[in-house]
Design a protein around this nucleic acid. Structure first.
Length: 525
DNA sequence: AATCCGGTCAACCGCACCACG
DNA sequence: CCGTGGTGCGGTTGACCGGAT
């Protein structure tokens, strides 16, 4: 991008690069190829030109031959990467649009860290871009103690996986595997891909989106991510696009294993209830709620009345110029006059949006976006719904509070986690929800937060266990207080305190991966 | 003005897979 | 079956930048 190297801007080649346009005198610390040291580091415009010329003549592929034929002192991998990420046509540069952000979130909920596959569904975007975006987003959201996915995304994936499980059990007896697959939809509305197919013509680097359905996506994405993907870590190595067929062929047999996470979640509506979502859960909820993900079509006014200076879509999308060396004004993020990019804006929205006004009891959030205000709303909702806990739900919570232990001591990172016996039933029962937050506890300088999604537990930076209290609550770092301010922060504390019991997930150091055990207990009589 | 720090991005590296001989 | 080359993916690193101190 703009800072792709002070050496690489057009017309700004250093002396040695001017003398040696291909950068022969650059950084040659890399591997040698046939005795010729290969350059590393940022690409120069001259090198780009050489590579473009090479591809024009010889086409893509055979990257190791680039050096032979063009004299470019770059290894094949570097050439391929440069071409794929910067030089190939129809690359879309600039900040991600809100639509793209939504798609990324949704895809990641089902795919995990399959950046290349995600890029295949974002026309003109590269896996590297998406990866960088996601990692940045993860850091910010983790710092804020927010869930990675909006509840709808997680729950939708859960519901669809449940549905696919049931379908699989039934249909596998009557239909061929292929037909079964074609009949399913695993979490991502296929309508999403209708548009993508329409854009397929501008995906030169992406295999044909032939009948890519959410089902295939989900199958490819059931593996977990290091950031706490929603899915269980079954499939470690993605076999990429060529795996589509093999996966599909073996789909039926593998389904039960791949989705064991949800095997015990027989009542999705209860799950929705636990998430604070409207129930019976509406699978089309997100499509019926344009505010999903905090999106406001037609206006860039945020739901809280704040305005964003950036424009949502059109100007965020800039086609790359042939030179591929961007002026700052093209970047939407570096230039002095640039408004916050949609990327920043959308994530900031997660953090900055104050809670909406008075919140009633269990009802659909006005903005089930995963944004902070929506989170607060959810917390309030959950808190107000605490009295509606069924016996089963109490068992669920109780189990999680009393029995659940970290997957391993190493993964826990909570070396001082309370022993299981600290999670006594008495702790749960005898302590009314509304009393969890007390002035005394406030004096303990501890801010309680329900970690709605165990993803958040992965961040040890802000996750601490309050050994003094011994109840396994999670302490939010100062970031949340800073974000919310005193009054709002206190309100948030109270809501979070209520939510933590209602929700039942905030009371242990369990990671997301331990959730199947919870679900199993959920089914206990 | 200097320094520090976090965010962003491009590029590199290691690994895995496939094709082919 | 095995070795090798080509390719692609995901994780990581380091440079750059702007804002904060």
């Amino acid at each position: 991008m703009s800072h792709a190297g002070s050496e690489s801007e057009d017309g700004m080649l250093s002396n040695n690069q001017i003398e040696s346009p291909l950068g022969e005198e650059g950084n040659y610390g890399g591997s040698a190829n046939g005795g010729v040291a290969l350059k590393k580091g940022p690409w120069t415009s001259a090198e780009d030109a050489v590579l473009i010329e090479y591809v024009k003549k010889h086409g893509e592929g055979n990257w190791n031959a680039v050096q032979k034929h063009s004299g470019l002192f770059r290894c094949g991998k570097s050439c391929r990467l440069r071409w794929a990420n910067h030089l190939r046509p129809n690359l879309k540069k600039g900040a991600f649009t809100q639509e793209e952000e939504q798609l990324i979130i949704q895809l990641h909920a089902t795919m995990g860290n399959k950046w290349a596959q995600m890029a295949a569904h974002l026309p003109g975007r590269t896996d590297n871009e998406i990866k960088n975006y996601w990692n940045t987003r993860i850091k910010r959201r983790q710092r804020a103690g927010l869930p990675l996915y909006p509840p709808e995304v997680s729950l939708q994936a859960m519901q669809e996986s449940q549905r696919c499980l049931n379908n699989d059990r039934i249909e596998s007896e009557h239909k061929s595997q292929h037909d079964t697959l074609l009949s399913k939809n695993y979490g991502i509305p296929n309508i999403m891909f209708a548009n993508l197919k329409a854009n397929q013509s501008i995906l030169p680097y992406v295999p044909e989106l032939r009948d890519i359905t959410a089902s295939s996506l989900l199958m490819k994405g059931v593996s977990s991510s290091q950031y706490g993907s929603f899915m269980s870590p079954i499939m470690h190595r993605q076999k990429r696009l060529r795996e589509e067929t093999t996966l599909l062929s073996s789909f039926s047999g593998g389904m039960k294993n791949e989705f064991h996470l949800f095997d015990q979640f027989h009542d999705v509506n209860k799950a929705a209830q636990s998430f604070g979502l409207p129930f019976p859960f509406d699978p089309d909820y997100t499509t019926k709620n344009p505010e999903f993900f905090g999106e406001n079509h037609g206006s860039h006014t945020l739901a809280n009345g704040n305005f964003s200076a950036s424009k949502p879509t059109a100007e965020a999308v800039k086609l790359e110029l042939p030179s591929l060396q961007y002026s700052e004004t093209d970047l939407g993020g570096r230039g002095p006059s640039c408004s916050p990019s949609p990327l920043i804006e959308s994530v900031d929205t997660f953090i900055q949006s104050p809670p909406t006004g008075t919140v009633e009891s269990v009802c659909p959030s006005p903005r089930n976006s995963g944004l902070l205000d929506a989170l607060l709303h959810e917390a309030k909702t959950l808190s107000s719904a605490k009295n509606q806990l069924s016996e089963k739900e109490f068992k669920f919570i109780h189990y999680y509070s009393c029995e659940c232990t970290p997957i391993s001591a190493n993964e826990s990172s909570l070396d001082e986690s309370p022993s299981a016996e600290t999670f006594t039933e008495a702790n749960v029962k005898s302590e009314p929800v509304d009393q969890i937050w007390t002035a005394d506890r406030e004096n303990e300088s501890s801010t309680w937060l329900d970690i709605t999604f165990p993803d958040a537990l992965l961040d040890s930076d802000w996750l601490e266990h309050d050994s003094a209290c011994g109840k396994g609550q999670v302490i939010v770092n100062d970031a949340m207080g800073t974000l919310l301010g005193d009054d709002l922060g206190n309100e948030y504390k109270q809501m979070a305190a209520g939510a933590s019991v209602s929700h039942g997930w905030g009371h242990s150091s369990c990671s997301w991966d331990s959730m199947p055990a919870v679900y199993q207990m959920y089914e206990l009589p």
